[in-house]
Write a protein that binds this DNA or RNA. Sequence first.
DNA 1: TATGAATGAGGGTTCATTCAT
DNA 2: CATGAATGAACCCTCATTCAT
Lengths: 199, 199, 199, 199
Amino acid sequence: MGKADQNKKLKMDNLLNTSFELFTSKGINKTSISDIVEKAGVAKGTFYLYFKDKYDIRNRLISHKSSQLFLEAYDAMHAAMVTGFENRIIFIMNYVLDALAANKGLLAFIYKDLSWAVFKKALINPAGPEVVDFRAVYNKMLNESGMTFDDPEVMLFLIIELVGSTGYSSIMYSDPVPLNDLKPHLEKSVRSIIAMYAH
Amino acid sequence: MGKADQNKKLKMDNLLNTSFELFTSKGINKTSISDIVEKAGVAKGTFYLYFKDKYDIRNRLISHKSSQLFLEAYDAMHAAMVTGFENRIIFIMNYVLDALAANKGLLAFIYKDLSWAVFKKALINPAGPEVVDFRAVYNKMLNESGMTFDDPEVMLFLIIELVGSTGYSSIMYSDPVPLNDLKPHLEKSVRSIIAMYAH
Amino acid sequence: MGKADQNKKLKMDNLLNTSFELFTSKGINKTSISDIVEKAGVAKGTFYLYFKDKYDIRNRLISHKSSQLFLEAYDAMHAAMVTGFENRIIFIMNYVLDALAANKGLLAFIYKDLSWAVFKKALINPAGPEVVDFRAVYNKMLNESGMTFDDPEVMLFLIIELVGSTGYSSIMYSDPVPLNDLKPHLEKSVRSIIAMYAH
Amino acid sequence: MGKADQNKKLKMDNLLNTSFELFTSKGINKTSISDIVEKAGVAKGTFYLYFKDKYDIRNRLISHKSSQLFLEAYDAMHAAMVTGFENRIIFIMNYVLDALAANKGLLAFIYKDLSWAVFKKALINPAGPEVVDFRAVYNKMLNESGMTFDDPEVMLFLIIELVGSTGYSSIMYSDPVPLNDLKPHLEKSVRSIIAMYAH
DNA sequence: TATGAATGAGGGTTCATTCAT
DNA sequence: CATGAATGAACCCTCATTCAT
C-alpha cells in the first residue's frame, strides 16, 4: 500500500469513526454532513470524494459494526468453551443483547436494520474484506452440533427476528419487561424453536 | 352535530386520508406538509388547526389503521367460528399477514411501529373513542380459552414481535422465504410458544 | 349608558387589561392577537370590532397608563404637601422613576414612546375623556411657582427627555450606575436646567 | 490577502451595505432577509455564512456607523482647531446633530440604540478593529482640558442621553422645536451640566 | 354583535451538493 | 487530492386578517 493509499485510508477511517460517534450520539437524522466534516476536521467537498452520501456511510458502518459485534460474541463463546448448539446460540444471543444494552446508541443506530435483510447483507453476503462471513460461521456451528436441522436458514431467521425485535423494545423502553426479565423467556423460546427444527 | 362541526370533521378526515395516501405511497419522510395540504386542497395554516405536526397525524393514523385491521381480523375470526385459543391466535395472525401482504404501503407505513410499543399505545391504551381496546379483547380470548397462562402479556409480546418482524421481511422482500412459505413455520412456532406458557 | 354600551365597555376593558398584562410580561412583539383573545376569552373576530390592530390597542394603553402614572405622582405630590416649583418637579421625577423601577414591564412597554412625542400626544393633547390634560397641570404648577420662565415648554422637554432616557438605562441595565446612584445626579441636573430658565 | 479572502470581504460588505440601505429606507422590522439577499444578489444561504441573523447585521452596522460618525466629528473638531473642553463637546454635539439631521434614515436606524447602552458597546468597548475606542478619545479630551471632573462617566452619560433623546424628537418631528431652535438650548444645558461636574 | 375556521403570504433557517481555486 | 464558499430549493411554522354563520 503506497503512502497515498495509506493517507486515503486514514481519511476514510477518520470520517467513518466520526460519523459513527455522531450517529450513535445524536441519531442519523439529526446528523448533517456539516457536522461530520467539522468534527472530522476535513472540508465538505472531501466527504464526497469518499462517500456518496450519509446513507452510504451508514451502510458501511452497519456492516462493520454488526460484523464486529457478532465476531466478538463468537470469540467470547469460544473463550468460554461453550458446547452444544443450543447453548452456543443462547450464549451469542445473551452476549449481543448485553452489548447492545450497554450501548443504546449503537442499538438505536443499527436497529432499523438489525433485521434479517441487513443481517444477511452485512454478515452473510459480506461486501468488504474486513467483514466476517457469518454464514460460514453458522454452518460450522451446525456441523459441529452433530445434529441435522430442517430449514436451518428459516430457523436462524426466526431466532434473529424474535430476539432482535423483543430485545429492542426491552432494552430501549423496558417494555413490557426489562432485559433481565426478558432473557429467560427468550432462552426458553429459542430453545423451543431449535427443538422444533432439530431431528 | 352542527353543520360547522360536520364540516370540521370532513376537513379532518380529508387531511387524514390524504396523508395516509401520501405516507403509504411515498413514505412519511418524503412527504412534506406542503404535499399534504396541496393534495387535500386546503391552506397550509389549516393543517395546523387540526394537527401539531406530521408525526401527530402519523400517530393518529397508525392507531386508527392498526385498530381497524385487528378489529377486522377479530370479526372475521368470529364469522369463521374459530374455536380454541391457539387456533384463534393463528387465525388472527394469518388474517393480518394476508391483509398486510395485500397492502404493502400500509405495511411499510406502520412497520416501524408495528412493534410492541405502538401496538400497546394504539391498541391497548387507546386514546380515542373509535380505537378498539385490544387488551380487553385479548383478555376475553384468554378467559374463553379455559386455560391459564403464565405471563400472558409477555407471551403476546413474543408472538407479536416474532410475527411482525418476520412477516415484514417476508412480505416486503420474500426474504428468506415468501409469505406462504413462512406461514407454516410461524404457525408451528406460535403454537410452540403458547404451549410453553399454558398449563 | 345603555346596557349594550355597558357590555361593550366591559369587553373593551377586558381586552385592554389582557393586552396590558401580556405586553408588559412578554413584550408587544412576542404577543400575538391570538394570545390576547385567548386570554381574554373572546373570539378572534371580536378583537377587530374594537381595535384596528395591536398597535391601536398599544397606543391607547400608553396614553392611559402614562396618564395614570403622572396623575398618581401629582396626587402624591399634593398629599406630601411639597412646595416650590423645583421641589415639585423633582418629587414627580422621583415618584415616576421609582414606579417604573418597581414595574420594569411597564417601563419596557412605554419606553420606546416615553419620549416627548408620545408624552405630548398622551398627556398634553389627550384624546379620551379619562386621560389627564397634563399641560393644564403643568401650567398650574408654573403659575403657582410665582416665577416666570423662558420657553417653559422646551424646559419641560429637556427635563423629560433627560430623565426618561437616563432612567431607562439605569433601571433596566444599572448602566452606567443603578437608579439610586443616578438620582442625585439627575436632581442636580434638573435643578440646574430649571435655574437656567427661571428669572 | 488572497483572492478568495478579498472576494469574501466583498460579499460581506455588499451584504452590509445592502442591509443598511434597506434598514434606513424601510426600517429593520419591515426588512426581511429575503429582501436583503435579493437586493444584494446572493443566495439566501449565503447570508447565514456571514451573519447569525438580522440583528447580528444590525449590531455590526450600528457599531460601524456610529463609530464612523463620531470619528468624523472628532476629526472635524481637530481640523477646526477647537480648544477648550466644553467647546469641543459642543462642537462634536453640533456636528453629530447636523449629520443626523442630514440623514434621517441613519438617525431612525440607530436611534433606539443611540443611547448609552449601545454607545458604550459600540464605541467604548469596541468589538472589531475598524471601530474607534471612543473611551480613549474621551479620556484624551479630559486630560487635555487641564481640569478635573467628578464622575466623568456619568457626566458623559447625561450629555449623550439628553442630546440624543431631544435631538431625535427635534430632527424627526420638529417637536417641540426644530433642530436649529433646539441647539442653543442644548448648548446652554450641556455647558451647565459640565460646569456642575468640573472643579 | 359575536364567532372561530380558514386563509396563504411570508417568516427564518437548514443542508446536500457543486465547482472554481 | 483537497478545499470551503456559494448555492437555492425545501423545510416547518406563524399570524394578522377575513367572512360565512
